[in-house]
Amino acid sequence: MTSIDTSHTEWLPLFPLQTVLFPDGILPLRIFETRYIDMVRECMRLDRPFGVVAIREGNETGQVAQPEPVGCSAAIFNWDMEVGGLLMISTRGGLRFRVRETRVLADQRLEARVDYLDADPVVELLPEQIDCGEALKAITDDFDQRVGRNNAQDYPFALPLRLDEAGWVANRWSEILPLALKTQQQLLELNDPAMRLTLIQACLKQQQILQG
């Protein structure tokens, strides 16, 4: 079980990416840069997470990028080394955090001291939000019929499914909808899961996934 130090004294390795990781989200990564392979190996050795942060300025490769102020911890639950030295890992989103301070290591890796944010409270879908859960269930049912759940490591959503929880449903839609990176980041930073789902519902109606 990957442990998270919430004492605010440890430096958390950061992985700046052109994506947003949400709590309980599944994020596969294909890693080829030596600095991040070293980072992942160290995290696995110590059984500790790293932090995924969206890039505010810069690129995923080369010089260290400027991260957004809020990210999400990522626990590694599967890995494989491909021919040619590419490292494939599967991660699951944990707690959100706010960056307090950062430092750049000699190999251009980024670390931060962070304040972990509270997990979403368990809030059931409001009656007017039931269609969001039903539409997501249709997607999971289709996947179950085509692929099944024989190997939870290959399942696109973290199990068990929590289709009656506003935060969980909002987070999964935030991952699979074609949203701009900035929009995903704004959703991640919202502390109110019901409000997050309300905004997602508007996107679903705008994209005609739900009836207007």
Rank of each mutant, 00 (worst) to 15 (best):
S7D: 10
W11Y: 10
W11M: 04
W11R: 01
L14N: 01
L14G: 04
P16V: 09
Q18P: 08
T19K: 03
F22N: 03
P23Q: 08
P23T: 00
D24V: 06
I26D: 00
I26Y: 01
L29I: 06
L29C: 13
I31A: 01
R35Q: 08
D38P: 02
M39T: 12
M39N: 01
E42T: 05
E42P: 01
M44A: 14
D47A: 14
F50G: 02
V52E: 03
V52C: 11
V52Y: 09
V52W: 08
V53S: 07
A54K: 13
E60K: 00
E60F: 00
V64A: 13
P67A: 01
P67M: 03
P69N: 06
A75M: 07
A75Q: 15
F77I: 06
F77D: 12
W79V: 14
L87C: 08
R92H: 07
G93R: 04
G93T: 04
G93K: 02
G93I: 08
R98H: 08
E101P: 06
Q108I: 00
R109M: 08
L110D: 06
A112K: 03
R113F: 05
V114L: 01
L117N: 01
D120I: 10
P121R: 07
V122I: 09
V123Q: 07
L125H: 11
L126N: 10
E128V: 03
E128A: 06
C132I: 05
E134L: 15
A138V: 13
I139S: 00
T140L: 10
D141M: 13
V147Y: 12
G148Y: 10
R149H: 15
A152E: 06
Y155G: 10
Y155R: 12
R162K: 12
E165H: 13
A166R: 02
W168D: 00
R172F: 07
R172L: 08
E175M: 15
I176D: 00
L177W: 04
P178M: 14
P178N: 10
A180R: 07
Q185T: 04
Q185F: 02
Q186L: 10
E189I: 06
L190S: 09
D192L: 02
P193R: 02
R196C: 05
R196Q: 08
T198E: 11
I200D: 02
I200R: 00
C203V: 13
Q211N: 14
